[in-house]
Amino acid sequence: MRLKQISERLSLQPVNATEEMLSADVTGGYISDLLSDVMANAERGTLWITLQTHENIVAVAVLKELAGVVIVNGRRPSEEAVEKALQEGVPLFVTPLSGFEVAGRLYMLFHAEEIQG
């Protein structure tokens, strides 16, 4: 599923995303607020849902080749994070929804796609 499709369906607000970034393919979701956990367990191409807002999220997203980062509960990424994300080409999104809600909706999107084939 394309990142653009997901961000539209879940009404995620892009912070820095260009059209090119939004055409990227997303393979699944991952939700965690522990950077070490994401480093150890998140799979390449997944969209990372988190409450963390500081710049290290960008480094983790780059290292793990994640599709992007969704910051939940109305939090805003730090200025440093936004700047770094621009440099590294990592799409950041914000949403007032909770982590549970975003994970739930994203899971259902993928599930629906599976059923349709």
């Binding site: 367990n41 849902i49 899971y107």
Partner: peptide, 18 residues
Amino acid sequence: HCTFSACGILYERGMRCC
């Protein structure tokens, strides 16, 4: 399950966030 799947499975069956 990982947290993502656990959320998804429960959400799909009607569980909602606070």
